[in-house]
Computed example of a mutant assay.
Amino acid sequence: MTKFKLAEFFSGPGGMGYGASISKIKDSSIEHAWATDYDQDSCNTYKRNIKSRDVYCEKIENFFNLVDKKKIILPRFDCFAYGFPCNDFSNVGEQLGFKGKFGPLYSYGVELINRYHPKWFVAENVGGIKSSNEGKSFTKILKDLEEAGKGYDLTVHKYKFEEYGIPQARHRIIIVGIKKELKLKFKVPKPTFKTITSKEALSNIPKNAFNNELTNNSKQVIERLKYIKPGMSAFNSIIPKHLQLNVKGAKISQIYKRLDPNKPSYTVTGSGGGGTHVYHWKENRALTNRERARLQTFPDSFVFEGSKESVRKQIGMAVPVLGAKIVFEAILKTFAGVKYPSID
């Protein structure tokens, strides 16, 4: 039985980590060695739900300094995953790329690879990273990852998770790197094209499920939602003037947008204020955090720590659990020499 020992940067609540923990084929599986994130609630959530030897709640900028001073003694690991912060590469925002606060954080993953030479790694980010800074940011990131350590063969693909049975239109760039000396080639798993609708995903949630408290929507929000049909938003609906949004500039199509019960959800996010909570197709309310977690394919047994707003952010920033599982199991099959349906 082959057990890969996984390390994680920017682990969040554990979407990628939990996906890895349930990934296994006949003779291979993934076991957690350690993880790190700067957000205390995310670290607490990770510790509660994922069996990991150590979870370090530290700013990534301080991490290697603590390792060098031996204040952190890292357990042994041979593979690595990180969804480096995407704020500066997202299509929603200014797309600052490397000029922003978060853009350069990918380099800490490169540093870890340079130091420890894992057999393989997975890096995840938003689809907008390809066009940030006219594509220069992405070119630089790929070059650094390919040349890290002793060199890695990269497979880069934009996954449309709704095509893989995830009940959410979430598009993410995933980079799989395998040591060149191993002479293995990762192939992108073929989409299942099995559509899971919002209605299917949100059915039969137990009344006493964790993180399932209702959001207190204002009377104005409730009144506004009455004029918005399933699949529509505040910007493409006929709404009385006193309920219309007083927003100048760009119109964001997901503001006060109801789900279409017959389609996968639109992208669940972790940032933003009013109007971005994801709204029920029939009931005049925002989704609960448990419903949002369902769209991210977290099991109902997965408990999030922290305030309601903290949990909302954790869920929105996570990688869909079953999406991560698909990628990790394809990696296990690659190393085990097991063929699987792929797009190339």
Rank of each mutant, 00 (worst) to 15 (best):
A33F: 03
F298E: 00
D37M: 04
K26N: 12
P230S: 06
S237A: 13
R224P: 03
Q244H: 13
K136Y: 14
N125D: 12
F302A: 00
N49R: 01
I222K: 13
F89D: 04
G17I: 04
G17V: 05
S131K: 13
D54N: 14
L184T: 03
K263S: 09
I173C: 01
F98Y: 10
E58A: 06
C79H: 00
Y279I: 09
D37V: 03
G306T: 07
N262W: 06
K251P: 04
P191Q: 03
S29I: 03
G270R: 09
P118H: 09
R224T: 02
S52L: 08
E200L: 06
G275S: 01
I72N: 11
G177C: 13
R48G: 12
N204E: 11
V126Y: 01
F84Q: 04
L332E: 04
E283V: 15
K51R: 12
E329C: 02
D153A: 12
P341T: 01
I73V: 14
G149E: 03
E291M: 10
N236G: 07
S29Q: 11
F84Y: 10
S307D: 10
N217Q: 06
Y227H: 15
F80N: 04
I252H: 14
H171D: 15
K185G: 03
F80Q: 06
G272C: 07
F9M: 02
Y279R: 14
F335Q: 03
Q95P: 10
V221A: 13
R290F: 06
S233F: 07
P341V: 00
L66T: 02
K5H: 14
D78V: 09
R285L: 04
N125P: 01
S198F: 03
G249K: 08
D153Y: 10
T195Q: 11
W281A: 06
T267Q: 07
K150W: 06
C57P: 09
I174W: 08
E146M: 11
P206D: 09
V311A: 05
H280Y: 01
F98K: 13
I331V: 14
S342R: 05
R224Q: 06
G83W: 00
Y152L: 09
A148N: 05
G128D: 05
E147T: 10
N208I: 07
I238V: 12
G151A: 02
F98T: 05
G273K: 15
D41T: 13
P118R: 08
V247R: 14
L182E: 11
E309F: 14
S107W: 07
Y108H: 15
G109A: 08
F10H: 00
S218K: 05
